[in-house]
């Protein structure tokens, strides 16, 4: 088999942040690289190569997934939301606002993944306990904050969202 045949491209159709994309990808392309390199959505980060760190977390059909663990071809026909799709113009999503209010980020590298995980958590559990938040963050690593203010940020956002 020639190299070219090995890497034969596959057409996919994905809706990302409400925009429909027709694209062609190598079968082995991970969703995170499709987002970053083909759509230039660089807010989704790569922090590891073993699906541990969660920096690449996005929503796939409404569920938080690690986009390094999904092939782009698996997203064919799906709806994807990335951190770039959260804010409404200049109005931050309450979780984004919470991270700023409560100093839930330092270097910011893990932040998009943290925020996407937190948004999904609050969509399914609007009033999580500290333990539930920490459990939800099991798959998201941060080396700067000690997680203390990330938990506070999510609580702040939960309260704001509950109050509407």
């Amino acid at each position: 088999m020639t190299a070219e045949a090995e890497y034969a491209a596959v057409p996919i159709n994905v809706a990302v942040n409400g925009i429909n994309y027709d694209a062609v990808v190598e079968p082995r392309t991970l969703l995170v690289y499709f987002l970053r390199e083909q759509l230039n959505l660089t807010g989704t980060h790569v922090g590891c190569d073993t699906s541990q760190c969660g920096a690449c977390t996005v929503h796939l059909n409404g569920r938080a997934v690690k986009s390094c663990t999904v092939l782009a071809v698996q997203a064919d026909g799906a709806e994807v939301k990335t951190v770039e799709g959260l804010a409404d113009g200049d109005n931050f999503h309450p979780v984004q606002e919470g991270f700023r209010e409560k100093h839930g980020l330092q270097c910011g590298y893990c932040t998009p993944g943290m925020i996407m995980t937190a948004v999904h958590l609050l969509e399914t559990n609007p009033n999580p306990s500290d333990d539930e938040i920490k459990h939800a963050l099991e798959g998201n690593l941060c080396r700067c904050t000690g997680y203390v203010n990330i938990v506070e940020s999510i609580k702040w956002a939960a309260e704001k969202m509950r109050k509407g």
């Binding site: 959505l41 660089t42 790569v46 770039e84 700023r100 910011g108």
Partner: peptide, 15 residues
């Protein structure tokens, strides 16, 4: 420094 970082508009080397 937070607004770009919480909206995915930061710019790290890989970006």
């Amino acid at each position: 420094e937070d607004p770009p970082l919480i909206t995915g508009k930061g710019c790290y080397v890989d970006d």
